[in-house]
């Protein structure tokens, strides 16, 4: 940067590839460091919200399915603090909500609506029908069907490994939670499957992938509601 005004001195630099490369490296590191280091060091940049807890084993499995199917390509999970977004979706996204998101799934394009506040908006059965055939619940929808999720087996073989990996990275799972992850997941899946059956939906979904995905979607926005944070729209 300092040599910009003097082509003569720059000319010299052009004969020294090593020095040139070192100067380039410094130039590109400054910006990233200046933005990222404060983010890590200053705790208040990510204010904690007491009701935000780690995902359950089943929700985590569902989240990984959400990643596998590339849902993030069409659905954001970050409501912006505008009145029209609060009206449409609910409370705007807080930093404290995201502390267990590995990776973050905020997205960059809304071909479908934002999903960060979708938890509890529809019954479990609605989601089953919607995945099977989106147009059965939303007549003009452009979303492709995900009917195979109702048929493919839910794979929970490495859910304990998933939890322990996250635990290593800092998510506060207890050793018990890690060890019993698969059992906990099966339990939660059975509950959701039962609620679907009670609502008059298909039976035998407890060991299908769709259940995990629904558990994840129903979780979205729940923590922040528990903290009493609302959309705060004033008319």
């Amino acid at each position: 940067m300092t040599k910009t005004s003097t082509p003569g001195r720059h000319r010299k630099l052009e004969g020294w590839p090593l020095v040139f490369s070192i100067l380039v490296t410094i130039s590109i590191l400054v910006g990233g460091a200046a933005e990222f280091i404060p983010m890590v060091l200053i705790e208040e940049n990510v204010p904690r919200i007491a009701t935000v807890t780690p995902f359950t084993p089943l929700e985590l499995t569902g989240r990984d399915l959400y990643i596998r199917e590339g849902c993030v390509g069409c659905h954001s999970q970050m409501v912006r603090p505008f009145r029209h977004e609060l009206e449409r979706y609910g409370p705007y996204g807080r930093a404290g909500e995201t502390i267990y998101e590995r990776p973050f799934l905020w997205g960059s394009k809304r071909t479908g609506p934002d999903l960060s506040r979708v938890g509890g908006k529809y019954p479990d059965l609605w989601h089953v029908r919607h995945f099977e055939d989106p147009r059965s619940t939303s007549p003009r929808s452009l979303m492709p069907p995900y009917d195979w999720l109702l048929r493919s087996e839910l794979d929970l073989t490495n859910v304990s490994t998933k939890l322990s990996t996250l635990k290593t990275l800092g998510t506060p799972y207890t050793d018990d939670e890690v060890a019993s992850a698969e059992r906990t997941a099966r339990q939660q899946a059975a509950e959701i499957a039962a609620s679907i059956e009670q609502g008059g939906g298909p039976t035998g979904l407890a060991d299908k992938e769709v259940i995990a995905l629904i558990s994840f979607l129903q979780r979205l926005g729940k923590d922040i509601r528990a903290a009493g944070i609302t959309a705060e729209v004033s008319r």
Binding site: V40, A95, Y100, E101, R102, P103, W106
Partner: peptide, 14 residues
Amino acid sequence: QSYPIYAGVQDALV
């Protein structure tokens, strides 16, 4: 499969 060493806001920034 892997999980990033960054979470949430940090992951977004990186």
